[in-house]
């Protein structure tokens, strides 16, 4: 059973629609009891990291998620859920992440690129490392992005996908049972659904 973590912000119904489309069973998790029923987590989120973080704290599930993921429960972070995997984010303040992956999240502005911010639209993801979630997905497949923040100082061994937007942005990471993507697979049509399917059906920690 997939546990979609109810962050109270953004794209949860879209993630649920995508899971329905690939015939996967799921529950929405907003308490410790819900988390106990799930064998894998998807952590979605659209909005600002501040709201996202405060919502998870309010539900008292931050540490509960952390413990379970440390104990091998697979997790896929999407967009803000991807940002949450790192050490911290400085979107409207300075907030802790789960610290599952080395690196911190900062405004793309700080990279001093010439491109307009936010990075919004379809961009091709260069696959740096073949992993389960990229099974049956071509290199340089287009995915849908919408974000102003990006992780930096990410360890090379964790980077599985990048895009070019003035500079190389890290958009997909992997560390053991942990996956994260900056783009929205639930909004990236066939190839996005394939990525979710790969995580749901094929990944075993």
């Amino acid at each position: 059973m997939i546990g979609v973590i109810d962050t109270g912000i953004g794209n949860i119904p879209s993630v649920c629609s995508a899971l329905k489309k690939i015939n996967s069973d799921f529950i929405l998790c907003s308490s410790k009891l819900d988390l106990d029923r799930a064998s894998k987590f998807i952590l979605p989120g659209v909005g600002s990291y501040k709201t996202f973080y405060e919502n998870i704290q309010k539900k008292n599930i931050f540490n509960e998620i952390k413990i379970r993921v440390k104990n091998e429960t697979p997790i896929l972070g999407i967009c803000l859920g991807f940002h949450a995997l790192f050490e911290s984010s400085n979107e409207f303040g300075n907030y802790n992440g789960f610290k599952f992956i080395n690196g911190r999240v900062t405004n793309i502005e700080n990279l001093n690129i010439q491109e307009r911010i936010p990075h919004v639209g379809w961009n091709n993801c260069e696959i740096k490392k073949e992993t389960t979630i990229f099974k049956n997905i071509d290199n340089n497949t287009n995915f849908y992005f919408t974000h102003s923040f990006t992780p930096i100082n990410v360890q090379k061994s964790n980077i599985i996908g990048v895009v070019n937007y003035g500079k190389e942005l890290v958009v997909a990471v992997h560390n053991h049972n942990i996956f994260g993507v900056q783009f929205h697979p639930e909004k990236s049509q066939k190839q996005g659904l394939q990525l979710i399917k790969n995580f749901v059906e094929d990944f075993n920690a």
Binding site: V46, T51, P118, S148
Partner: peptide, 9 residues
């Protein structure tokens, strides 16, 4: 709204 949902939204 920008504070809550982020400027890219």
């Amino acid at each position: 709204l920008i504070n809550i949902f982020g400027s890219s939204s």
